[in-house]
Amino acid sequence: MRKILLTFIIATFFVSFSEAQSCTPDNLYQDSSFGIWPDTAQDLPPAAAGVAYSTDINFICPDNVTAELDPSGQFVGNPIDEFTVTSVDGLPNGITFACNESSCQYDGGELGCANIYGTTDSLGTFPLTINVDVVVLVTVFGVTAPVTQSESFGGYELIVGSAGTIEQIITPISIAPNPGHDNISIKGITSKMKAEFVEIVNLNGQIAQSQAINSSNCDIDIKNLENGIYIARIHYLNGIKNIRFIKN
Score class of each variant (00 low, 15 high):
Phe197Gln: 08
His181Cys: 03
Tyr29Ile: 03
Asp89Pro: 01
Asp133Trp: 00
Leu123Val: 04
Gly77Asn: 07
Gln168Val: 06
Ser210Trp: 06
Arg244Thr: 09
Asp63Trp: 01
Ile9Gly: 02
Ile231His: 04
Cys61Phe: 08
Asn100Trp: 03
Asn131Leu: 02
Gln149Thr: 08
Val201Glu: 12
Ser102Glu: 10
Phe17Ala: 12
Ser16Thr: 15
Gln209Glu: 12
Asn78Tyr: 10
Ala98Trp: 00
Pro146Asn: 03
Asp107Arg: 07
Pro71Cys: 01
Asp39Arg: 03
Ser162Cys: 02
His181Tyr: 04
Met193Asn: 00
Gly35Leu: 06
Phe59Cys: 02
Asp70Tyr: 02
Thr165Leu: 11
Asp133His: 00
Val143Met: 06
Ile116Phe: 11
Phe17Met: 11
Thr86Phe: 02
Asn242Val: 07
Leu28Asp: 08
Gly180Ser: 04
Pro92Gly: 05
Glu19Thr: 15
Gln149Asn: 07
Glu151Gln: 11
Asp39Gln: 15
Ala145His: 11
Asp121Ala: 04
Tyr117Met: 09
Tyr106Pro: 03
Gln30Arg: 03
Ile116Trp: 05
Gly112Ser: 02
Ala20Glu: 14
Pro92Ile: 15
Gly161Glu: 08
Ile229Trp: 10
Ile246Pro: 04
Phe8Tyr: 14
Asp43Val: 05
Asp221Trp: 13
Asp121Ser: 10
Ala176Gln: 05
Ile207Ser: 04
Ser54Gly: 10
Gly180Val: 04
Ala47Glu: 14
Gln21Phe: 09
